[in-house]
Amino acid sequence: MAINLKTVDDKELLYGTKICQGCGAGMAARMALKVLGEKTVLCTPACCFAATTTVFPQSSIFVNNAISAFPGLAATASGMTHAMKALGWDDDYTMLAIAGDGGTIDIGLQGLSGAAERNDDLIYICYDNEAYMNTGVQRSGSTPFDAWTTTTPTGPCSKGEKNKFRKSLFEIMSAHRIPYVATASVAYPQDYMAKVAKAKEIKGCRVIHVSAPCPTGWGYDTAKTVELAKMAVESGLWYLAENEGGEMKLTYKPKELKDPADYLKMQKRFKHLTEEDIQEIREIRDAEWERLKKVLSFE
């Protein structure tokens, strides 16, 4: 389903939040709610998103919503979607869970695996800002190699995050054989929103992993969120893909991968990198891209 920005609903279902300026998570949630509409029930863990939307007496969410615990989000959403059916809610309501990368691929993974195994009828969106941002930029299982965070500080004995590969939520969820899994980026709203729209029409457990840069945690000018998110995709450090019923494919292929150096140099979390370090990242990117070609069957 092609997304025409001119006709996308003007009505805001997320407004007046206290997110940081230029917040990618805010973009990701707003774009999703634009597609899903008012017939959405939203649940989030006690993450950035919850902390910036629903601090009493403020409630910046305009649909039914609740907060749950970090490891409990997916199961809470499961309980909610089961209850919606048991209590006879209209069929066109969407149960939406939104959590960050930490809340999803680290502390929330077990619960999400359970929800996926049961194929509970919900959409789960992971906004990935590549660290635990709400608690103050600590590393997560999605923090990229060499990135500075407050728990992977740089110094004579450290170059930042040590793991060369981030957990692949796309592949983890694909292995659960749920009906729909996708990756997306806030810099490609038509691609992302089309995926949300597609997910909305499917029953069962649907998971979308969306790249959402964080100016506060990454250290860049707040105006550059979309620019950076785009550079990540163009340089092959992130990818736009989907898995619909087992059919995996790339949904956007950069004509030619750009040099990651420009992307890295725009962010304070990578400012310590030498040319040698950047070369290592290029090599990791190249190997990962070759691997993705096999996983997603593209040339």
Binding site: V41, S68, A69, S78, G79, H82, A83, M84, G111
Partner: peptide
């Protein structure tokens, strides 16, 4: 569910509704 944490979380979610 796959754990007790999720058992209570799911009951919590259903109860919210």
């Amino acid at each position: 569910v796959e754990s007790e944490h999720s058992a209570m979380a799911a009951a919590f979610g259903a109860s919210l509704m």
